[in-house]
Amino acid sequence: MFDYPKDYRLIAGVDEVGRGPLIGAVVTAAVILDPNNPIEGLADSKKLSEKKRLALAAEIKQKALAWALGRAEAEEIDKLNILQASLLAMTRAVQALRIRPQFVLLDGNKIPNDLDIPAQAVVKGDSLVAEISAASILAKVARDQEMEELDRQYPEYAFAQHKGYPTKLHLEKLTALGPLPQHRRSFAPVRKVLENR
């Protein structure tokens, strides 16, 4: 069980999706749940089926007091590094909330330096904290949709299948076709393909 910080009513949960992929933005979400309108079945987005994630994402958007997405693009990831870009995207999600939270719970072990709200990092927070679970679901659904959109633009790369992660299929496509503008130049597999072209 997770012990929530005392004396705070408006608590936002924050999580990111997309640190591992070789392409596209790292996407974050921030969610303030409504204690009077609970949502059943919240869990780490990675442990849910796509169908369940989509259903829960719709319910979260409907029932949460506030929710927002944040992101850091591939160019920012290349400039800052993936950890700093993820933290920046988390701050952006919190700042985009239409209600200012009194406290922020973030998945992982790092807190963004530029967050001007009391915060706590929670390791495995996406499994322990409902607000972070909800954020992980929204971020995952949003990023998967972006990969499906990219798949429609570049069907030959099969993004709908691997979602940009460095799978055998993605690496084969990357080597054969070369990187797209959206690929993360600082990631070793992309760098290697660029060096060999």
Rank of each mutant, 00 (worst) to 15 (best):
D3N: 11
P5V: 01
I11S: 00
A12Y: 02
A12H: 00
V17K: 02
R19L: 02
L22Q: 07
A25V: 01
A25L: 05
A25C: 13
T28V: 02
A29D: 14
L33F: 02
A43G: 07
D44F: 07
D44P: 09
K46V: 09
L48M: 09
S49E: 08
E50H: 15
L54W: 10
A55I: 08
A57D: 08
A58C: 13
A58M: 14
E59R: 11
A64D: 04
A64F: 02
A74D: 09
A74Y: 05
D78T: 06
I82R: 00
I82L: 03
L83R: 09
A85H: 01
S86R: 03
L88K: 10
M90W: 01
T91N: 07
A93Q: 04
A93T: 06
L97D: 00
P101V: 03
Q102H: 12
L106F: 10
N109T: 13
K110N: 10
I111M: 05
N113P: 09
N113M: 12
D114Q: 14
P118Y: 06
V123G: 02
D126G: 04
V129K: 03
I132R: 00
A135W: 02
K140F: 08
V141A: 01
D144N: 10
Q145I: 07
E146T: 07
M147P: 09
E148L: 12
R152S: 12
R152I: 07
Y154Q: 12
Y154P: 10
Y154C: 07
Y154E: 04
A158M: 13
K163F: 09
L169A: 15
L169F: 09
K173V: 05
A176Y: 09
L177D: 08
P179I: 03
L180N: 06
Q182R: 13
Q182V: 03
H183V: 00
S186A: 14
A188T: 13
R191M: 15
V193M: 07
L194A: 14
N196Q: 13
